[in-house]
Amino acid sequence: MREFVRNAGVENLPDTLRGGVVAIGNFDGVHRGHQTVLQHALESAYKHKRPPVVLTFEPHPRSVFRPDIPLFRLTPAPMKARLFEAMGFDGVVEQPFTREFSQLSPEAFVHAMLIDGLGAAEAVTGFDFHYGKGRAGTPETLKQAGERYRFDVTRVDAFSDEGGEVVSSSRIRALLSQGKAAEAAGLLGYRYTVAGEVKNGKKLGRTLGYPTANMVLPEGTDLLHGIYAVRFRRANGTIHDGVASFGRRPTVEDEGAPLLETFVFDLDADLYGETCAVSLFGLLRGEEKFDSLDALVARMKQDEAEARALLSDVRPLSELDRCIAFST
């Protein structure tokens, strides 16, 4: 059985990841545009019987250059790794990105990462890939380096959606900030999914008949505050329908920190300390403040009924969506 490798940089790289076809990029979102790059790398690796590998960078370069501005990351490193594994890659190399690393010349980057580090047989990039100091390296300079050092280089053109617009992470972030989970899924090719450890809360939901699994999402998550129909995946792989609230709980708190609270349907289990994932299928309504707990509970019952109805006939958008948000 294939064992997926998640490696923190090219140092101490397992032999199983050397000499492969390497897809290079940040790939935040692993959206349909990214998937064209990744799929090309997979197909070439299978054709030439080489290991398919992803080279990405942690933290996101924007977090290093603009640390004062929180970045809405669509796929933090663990989620990206999970998506790469589901696609069929043998491993991901999460190269530490620092200011010192950013000062490598394009030539030094090629030697450190692709030649000495990964021993790459082929590098696959998107049309807008840049590397090295001042982003001076481009797919064209990478191709020239490949000719000098005898590794293949493939540049994959931009991918446009059915409306003719290029699919990008910024478009997806904008949709999610408006609560347009279904539209975002159309660009991602799978349902937007977050993951985290289930934390202890104030247990108010339990007293109202709606116990919730609570998660703190990463800083910068700019998802619209509201109520969503969701799928909840436990650490053991089992999947359950549910309804989730993301926001500050205005009915019961004056100014709480944003929290994702998921009421998991038909499940009675102790989830505290378990790392679980929540996939968003649709926005039911925005966050509201109710005059009383009775009014809140009445609306929660309506939310549950609407979520059950929405989720009763959903279908996978892709094989990747099936792996992430549907039972296998």
Rank of each mutant, 00 (worst) to 15 (best):
G242A: 02
L296K: 09
H225W: 09
H60S: 06
E274N: 09
G205D: 06
Y131L: 11
P70F: 03
D157K: 15
E219R: 13
N200S: 13
R2L: 13
A184G: 06
E306D: 13
P258K: 06
G117R: 10
V37Y: 12
R155H: 12
L293M: 14
A305F: 13
P14T: 00
E274P: 06
G20Q: 01
A213K: 06
Q178P: 02
L317W: 11
P76D: 03
T125K: 02
F159D: 02
H111L: 05
F84R: 05
A81K: 04
Q39S: 14
A77N: 02
V92N: 02
E3R: 15
L260P: 00
A86Y: 11
T75H: 04
E304V: 14
P76Y: 04
T262D: 08
L142I: 13
G205F: 07
D222G: 14
E11S: 15
L42W: 06
D268Q: 15
A45K: 09
G286C: 13
L271W: 00
K301L: 05
R234H: 10
L204G: 04
C323E: 13
P14F: 09
P70Q: 11
D266R: 14
E255S: 15
A229C: 07
V30F: 11
T193M: 08
R233L: 00
G33W: 05
I115Q: 11
S168Q: 15
L71W: 00
I239L: 13
L38D: 06
L310T: 12
D161G: 14
Y149S: 01
T75A: 09
G91E: 03
E219T: 12
D266C: 08
A235C: 04
V53D: 04
K180V: 03
G179W: 13
K143V: 10
F4R: 03
L223Q: 04
A257D: 11
I227N: 06
D222S: 11
L259Y: 12
G126W: 11
D128H: 07
F109P: 03
I115Y: 01
F281D: 05
K47V: 10
I239G: 01
V216T: 15
S44Y: 01
Q35I: 03
T56R: 14
T75N: 14
L83F: 12
E253P: 06
E219S: 15
L283C: 14
F263V: 08
A277M: 05
Y228T: 07
N12M: 10
G220A: 04
F326E: 07
K202A: 15
V167H: 04
M215Q: 13
T275I: 10
G146W: 12
E183G: 01
Y228V: 02
I69T: 14
L267R: 09
S170A: 12
P139Q: 04
T56W: 14
F127A: 14
T221N: 07
L74K: 11
D15P: 00
A23T: 06
